[in-house]
Amino acid sequence: MDTEEQTLLSCPAGVPVKVLRVAGGAGFHLRLKNLGLVEGKTLTKVHSHPFGGPVTVRLQHTQLAIGHGMAKRIYVEISS
């Protein structure tokens, strides 16, 4: 398994990645958890929207949009 650590913002689109950890306050953790995004989950980035726009990801059967700065604080590894 490739263990190179990246953020959700920097990781390539279209490849399944595993969430390693989330940096940020309790409120941020809570909002992600409420949407089903917790450590250990596998998700796939769909697009990074330009000009500081959000990152869209596919998580199980849902699609989420996560703000630019938030995506920077979600660390992932490519699960190949």
Partner: peptide, 10 residues
């Protein structure tokens, strides 16, 4: 300004 985080429904 908090950031956007939302579910995109099908």
């Amino acid at each position: 300004l908090p950031e956007l985080i939302l579910e995109i429904p099908p």
